[in-house]
Design a protein around this nucleic acid. Structure first.
Lengths: 131, 131
DNA sequence: TGTGCATCCTGTAGTAACTACAGAATACAG
DNA sequence: CTGTATTCTGTAGTTACTACAGGATGCACA
């Protein structure tokens, strides 16, 4: 139920119409149902999946990596060991991303704070991401 | 001191040599000194800057956005108000990225935990990034 | 019941951010 | 001093979009 055309999906997810069709060609979005006249029809599930893909892209995951994440849910027949192998590397990667962002955040906030006290900031931002 | 050639910079930062030259062409890395025979010479500062750029890219920032972040440190003549304007939007964006990653992390860990108890996971991962 | 503007279709071409390769010069280890 | 490694410039290919072009269909409104 609640069928929507590609334009509405685009607005709902803030993903460009052409990008949606590109994801379809790439097999990262499933082939949607079509209306009698060949127009694509989407449902709530597609909105969720596309939101997920879009946010992952914004977090620096490649389409290949996203395919890997989606495979966790697309096929329900992974063994326990496989799930572990797939999630462990991803959680490690995510933890690292969070840590890097946390450091950037810290330095930016500090910068703004110093600044508001009238001090000209010097240059700690770059070091913040250097291990 | 401690001058290194492009190959060492590439190894030190895990950034492809061709990508380093590409960043130079794009003006995101400064034109380096050259040896007598025209070979690029880098220093510790370049390692830090390139590490920063590389990590930002891995966190989903575009080169344009990274240019904006670097401008905070490249020119020391921002006014306090400008620093605030630039940092506030960035910190908002970073907070959002952290929150999205945190949710993904939670769901992946939960998935692995359920799995290790022998339960077949169903499908919460996609919802985790759906507001 | 027309009619005109919005939305959709396919297909192709352009852009951003790399990445790889060709062909030549220089560095340096044994 | 000779051969393998590294660097150089320049160009072409790849990934992930993004923007048309040209045509068909949908739908609000007179």
């Amino acid at each position: 139920m609640n069928a929507i055309p590609i334009g509405k999906l685009s607005v709902a997810t803030d993903v460009n119409i052409e990008t949606i069709r590109y994801y379809e060609r790439e097999g990262i979005l499933p082939l949607p149902k079509r209306s009698e006249n060949g127009r694509r029809i989407y449902f709530e599930e597609d909105v969720r999946r596309l939101n997920f893909i879009h946010k992952c892209r914004g977090l620096g995951f490649s389409l290949k990596e996203i395919r890997g994440l989606l495979s966790l849910v697309d096929t329900g027949d992974f063994t326990c060991g496989e799930i572990h192998a797939l999630t462990i590397e991803h959680t490690r990667q995510i933890a690292e991303k969070i840590e890097n962002l946390r450091r950037m955040q810290e330095v930016l906030l500090e910068m703004a704070a110093h600044c508001s006290k009238g001090k000209v900031p010097d240059c700690p931002i770059i070091d913040s991401l250097y291990e």
